[in-house]
Each structure stands twice: as structure tokens, then as C-alpha cells.
Amino acid sequence: MNRLKPFQGAAAGWLGVVPYGAFLAIFLIVPVISNIWTTFVSQGRFSLDAMSRLLKPQYLDAFLTTINLSLVTAVLGGVGGLALAWALNAAEKPRWLRNFVLSYSAVASQLGGVPLAFAFIAALGVQGVVTRGFLDVTGWDLSQTFPLASFAGLAIVYLYFQVPLMAILMLPALGSLKQHWSEAAASLGASRWHYVRDVVFPVLWPPILGALLLLFANAFSAYATAYALAGGGVNLVPIMIGFFISGNVMMDEGFAAALVTGMIFIIVVTMTLRALLERRANKWLR
């Protein structure tokens, strides 16, 4: 009897997770597994054929371009976002201004997709309001210098959500820097620079790097924004996957699956690193 009880308890516990687990299994895990299966199993046999085709120049170029775009927007967005987070943290006087900027940052960090793309086309497109205004005043056509359907154009649009996302991610970490730390450091003889070098930087680099990794993954998986702006104009992995799935290019299930597997692999690596860094940061910042 006594032996049975813990078993019953455990079984009852698992019972409650069955609908949740089954739902995720059917609509998330099995699709992902069948994707990986399709990548590595061809005609009933294990095969690296599809994966090795990822190394062909045009596909490798897609990965490199996507990584490049993600890196650039993560780093620039990281710098801008840190500045914004610092300002949100240091702001004193009009409370409403800070709250206004914070609330819009929270929304902008989640924006993206088709509406954002059209807002930018309205501003910086060939007929865009900003482009026209600039052209009238200076004679300089911005849409020629930074065409939206280009690497630079996509980077500008991505920064629209990367900067506020970085700010939102960094705000708690900045807030957890205790005033007592800077005062203790000053009392021990440290200058402002010593304090930044010895305390602020070592404490903040794990959350900063973690946030940058998230920004990277965020840009890497963006599809709708890039598709609406550039279509096939920029050689990006998500767009290429989209073409394969919608049948715009020659149907090849195994290869589309390989592209997806490569994409998931990169994001899993990024997010795992982030989880490790976060664990480290949480130990210090409470």
C-alpha cells in the first residue's frame, strides 16, 4: 500500500499535463521532428545529402547574408538600445515623458511584419514622404542611397524594433545596479571610470551579451517584414524557405527541410547561449 502511494501521486501529476503535452506534441514537436527527419532521411536511408547542399554558394550566401544582417542590426540595435535604456533609467523630471517613451518602446519592440514595412515604404520608399521632402530640400534622393529593398534598407527597418527591444531587455538589468555599489566604490577610492571598469561592466556584460543574442535570433527569424519590403531582393534564409514552401521555386521538400533545420540549429545555439548567460546574470542581479 505505502509503496503504491508515491506512484499514484506521480501518475496523477502527469495526468494533468497530458492535454498540454499532447497538444504541443501534435502541433509543435512532431512537425519539427518530421522536418528534421525529412532533412536526414531520404528514401528510407540516412543521408547528409540535403544538408551538404546547404554549402552550395547561393545557399551559403543566404546564410551568410542573414547572419550578417542579424549581426549588424543586433550590434547597432544593441548600442542604441543601451542608450535608450540608460535614458529610461536615469530620467527624472516629467514622469509622463518617460512612461510615454517606455510604453511606445514596448510596443515598437513587438512591431514588425506587414504594417511596419508599409509605414517605412510611406516614409522612405521611392514615393515616400520623407524621401520627397528630402529631395525637394537637398536634391538628395534617399531612396537611391538606401533603397528599402536592400541590405541597408532592411537593416534600417529592423533597427526600428531592435533598438526598443534592446532597451526593454536591458532596463531591468540597469535598474538592478545598486546605488550602494557606486557609493561603496567611491568610498573605497574608486573614480567613476574605476567603478565602470570594475563593477558596471563585469556585472552587465552577461545580460548585454544575452540580449544581443536574442536580438540576433529575432532578426534571423524575421520573415514578414523582409518579404513585404524586399520580396526576393535580398537573399535571406527565411525568404528562401518561404519560396520553397509556396512552390515559387522548384519543389524540393528535403532541401526546404534542410534550410529549416539549419535555421533552427542556429537559433537553438543562440538561445542556448543566452540561457546560460541568463543563469549567470540572475545569480548576481536580484
Binding site: K178, H180, W181, E183, A184, A185, A186, S187, L188, G189, A190, S191, D198, V199, V203, K283, W284, L285
Partner: peptide, 16 residues
Amino acid sequence: RNRGIGVVFQAYSLFP
């Protein structure tokens, strides 16, 4: 930093 003082705060002032 030039005053030669040592301070003990209420809590959480150690460098983490």
C-alpha cells in the same frame, strides 16, 4: 574617494 572613509550600508552593497 579622497576623504578616507569606510562605509557599511544597510544591505546588498557587496560587489556581486
